[in-house]
Design a protein around this nucleic acid. Structure first.
Lengths: 320, 320
DNA sequence: TTAGATTGATACCGTTTGAATATTGATGAC
DNA sequence: GTCATCAATATTCAAACGGTATCAATCTAA
């Protein structure tokens, strides 16, 4: 039988049942009665040709296929709502909306600086910041949930274009009472035997700050006494403030002025760059993104965010 | 008025009109007549509270808001198709995640062999290996945190089904300078008075490798001079390599080729089997698990992992 | 063990929604 | 001015959807 197509309503019903793990509870939540819900889910299963729920004596549970579909359905519902929001903004004559992906240390000063400056020229653009990891940003860009992402990219991504926004040096966050805080700059080799606070490894196949920092330590044969892992640079600074150890951070993290925490340059730091980059869809030729990129380039120039460079492997500042 | 929600159908209609720049042409393309198309677009415009098309004497043209919505709508339709494709793949067991419990010596060669082979047929299944003890595996299986576990099971567990993957003989890990290393095979009785490296007792009520090995020694009246306990087979092999004693291990541990460590069969070894088994929920009838079980059976056959057997108390290779 | 409660599935019915046909209105081509 | 083209409107009919009543299976409590 040529059953009806996939419809948003069915997706809403499915997501409700999946989240409530119960037809009855979901029906209450949806303000409909339970029998039609059962039927709609059955039709959905018929169209998809898979079983989405395992019916248990008490409630239901998602099958493996159901779990896969849940992720997709959630995403579609979110995008639908986003589409409505965007088209209404556009209808009101506003320029549009810009979804920006950021991460830990970028939101501390670099991204806010950019946003403030961009807002001056485009006051009617609605900007939303989304804190997400690099892999989440890439996924969101591909699904058009993000317009542009900020992160540390070291490898090319098909379909996406990236461009260095700021060249940052490696710095040491250390407690002011620590012996290493006594001088203006520190040698990497002096870090041997210290307690480190580090960030967890990113997903494999896509090296991030953490991997590069550890590689540098290994290159200089610095063996830490121990490594404490934390989720973000703010937590790391808190632990440094509490005297739990020292941490490798980037320049822009130095705006975090927690009690007792001081930042020191490395004598060797000229050799290491931790580029902050922005990334966007190569096929996105919207005037809004073009304007944003232009604004970033202009801000980058004003603040001299890229003059540090020098290494031969330097990526071109702009690619297209 | 609370008009009908956004529906996929409307998006399809909208995209068709936007691409054809004509209601008539779009209606033909959609295999419907023109009037309902007009009405659906009107409803869509009412819900969105924007005008999507500029009606011209000859055909229509997208407004600025319409262009914004077109990008969104295209994307949602693409993702919907992708969702259908993916959930169908998942229904066939070709997409999803598989959490696999393993332990010390199983991860050395057996489990990797299985994973590599399974991956060839099911490249889009995400496999995660979790190193955990037998009791942890059982608990995780009951809580559905694991799909399948690999371990040495000697007793039935309610609600779970297990199946022998590989029959392994007991072997002796010994330093090449040790007198017992001089012959190809060793008698169990010759172990009396030796220094042993053993694994800790498992939790009570669920005997594992360690208990069986000690029981065999007791059966042959072999009294060790001392027992050094280590956590896993890799540590045991390291100690053997260092000349701290000898250790009872299974065949698959022999892939650990540490300096000075050699492996010897036992003259009596035919009598003792240390079956490596996989265990899973009896009520899990997901196609992913079925596919995995089939893959393991096929690999088991190819490699002849079960031909050794022979004892009367041999458990059937397959239970269901 | 039995009685009641809970939960999903089924049957049936009325209302809503969507699509088809016929028609109208507006605009441009000749 | 007449015809052709295209979208909008009116009306009718069928399909889809949701509601009530009810059933079957299972779990809980006395």
């Amino acid at each position: 039988m040529q059953l009806t197509q996939i419809e948003i309503r069915r997706l809403r019903y499915f997501v409700a049942v999946a989240e409530q793990r119960s037809f009855r509870a979901a029906a209450l939540h949806l303000h409909i009665s339970q029998p039609p819900l059962t039927r709609q889910i059955q039709q959905l299963e018929a169209v998809l040709e898979v079983t989405l729920f395992e019916r248990l004596p008490r409630g239901v549970e998602l099958t493996e296929a159901g779990r896969v579909f849940y992720v997709e359905a959630r995403n579609i519902l979110d995008l639908t709502q986003q589409a409505v929001d965007r088209v209404r903004l556009a209808g009101e004559g506003r320029l549009g909306r810009l979804d920006v992906g950021t991460f830990g240390s970028a939101v501390l000063s670099t991204v806010p600086t950019i946003m403030l400056a961009f807002r001056r020229g485009y006051p009617r653009v609605e900007i939303t910041l989304h804190n997400m990891r690099r892999d989440e940003q890439l996924k969101a860009l591909r699904e058009r949930r993000l317009t542009v992402g900020f992160n540390r990219f070291f490898e090319d991504e098909p379909g996406l274009t990236w461009e260095v926004v700021k060249r940052e040096k490696l710095m040491l966050a250390v407690h002011e009472d620590h012996p290493l805080a006594r001088t203006e700059s520190v040698s990497l080799k002096a870090l041997a035997g210290e307690q480190f606070i580090a960030f967890p490894h990113a997903n494999p196949g896509s090296p991030g700050f953490s991997e590069r920092a550890r590689a540098i330590l290994a290159e200089f044969n610095v063996e830490p006494a121990g490594i404490l892992e934390v989720d973000d640079v703010t937590s790391a600074a808190s632990l440094v403030s509490g005297g739990f150890g020292l941490s490798l951070v980037t320049e822009s993290s130095a705006v975090l002025q927690l009690p007792g925490v001081v930042y020191r340059r490395f004598e060797e730091s000229g050799e290491f760059r931790f580029d902050l980059a922005m990334i966007y869809r190569s096929d996105d030729d919207s005037s809004l993104l073009r304007a944003f990129i232009e604004a970033v380039r202009s801000i980058r120039g004003e603040h001299g965010w890229v003059r540090a460079g020098g290494a031969a492997d330097t990526r071109p500042l702009s690619t297209n």
